[in-house]
Every structure is written in C-alpha cells, then in structure tokens.
Design a protein around this nucleic acid. Structure first.
Length: 124
DNA sequence: TATTTGACAAATC
DNA sequence: TGATTTGCCAAAT
C-alpha cells in the first residue's frame, strides 16, 4: 500500500491517495500551496467536495506535520488570519517573509491559490 | 452511540 | 463597519 511511501511522506508531498482520512487530505492539499500564495479554509473544503470549512480549520489546528505542511498559508475567506497554533503574530510574520501582503491582520488574497480537482490515485 | 468542539462562511440586521 | 445567527462537518470526548 501507498507505493511503499509513508503516509507522512505522501502528505508532505501534497499527494492524496485513497484511504486517507479527511484530515490527511486537508494536510496534503495544504502542502500544495506554494510559498507566496495563500488559500482559504473554504477553498480547501470545496476542493474536497464539501462545505465544511470548520472541519478544515480543525484539521489544520492539529497539523502534525508543521512546518513542512504550511498551514500558515490558509486564511479566512476575507483574508483575515483567523488562527494559528503558533500564534497569529507568527503566522503574519511567516506570510510576510514569503511576500504576502498583510495589513490590519488581513492577508491579501491576490495570490490566492487555485486547486486542481482532487483526483484520488487508483490503488496499485 | 451521542454530544461537544472549533484556526469557517454566508446571510441578515 | 460590526454584531448576531444559522448552516456546515470531521474529530475528539
């Protein structure tokens, strides 16, 4: 299973495979967002075919693969940072370091990332 | 098995 | 603008 690659490795590479839990898919999608870009909780939820933005937030809150899985690039639908396990100031600093504009606790959505439709790899 | 818990979001006022 | 309300959903209790 998993092509001999560890689940952790797949997630960090942003690859989604059948059998992954919702949270694992969230982490994998998050890993697809490049530095300098941002995405929203809602966008990730949609990419997974649901409107559970809150569930996405929960998953990221417990992200066990930080900082390889850059959950700081996920912001609210209006650009507000909304939350970060390491504290909002840290999230803001990370985003700025990557070139994302942050004003008044709000990130610019200009570099919003566009997810490709989730294609679950056929087993074996 | 049922309830509670959030790093959400859109609509309404 | 901001505050409130309601719908959403997987996980953890």
């Amino acid at each position: 299973m998993l092509d001999g690659m560890s689940l952790e490795q797949l997630i960090k590479r942003g690859e989604i495979v059948e059998g992954m839990t919702f949270n694992q898919k969230v982490w994998a999608l998050c890993a697809q967002v490049p530095a300098g870009s941002v995405t929203t909780y809602g966008d990730i939820a949609q990419a997974l075919g649901c409107n559970g933005a809150r569930a996405v937030g929960n998953a990221l809150n417990r992200n066990p693969y930080a900082p390889e899985v850059p959950c700081h690039r996920v912001v609210g639908s209006d650009g507000r940072l909304t939350g970060f396990a390491g504290g909002l100031p840290a999230k803001e600093a990370l985003l700025r370091a990557e070139g994302v504009e942050v004003r008044n606790g709000r990130a610019s959505l200009a570099s919003r990332h566009h997810f490709a439709p989730v294609r679950v790899r056929l087993s074996a």
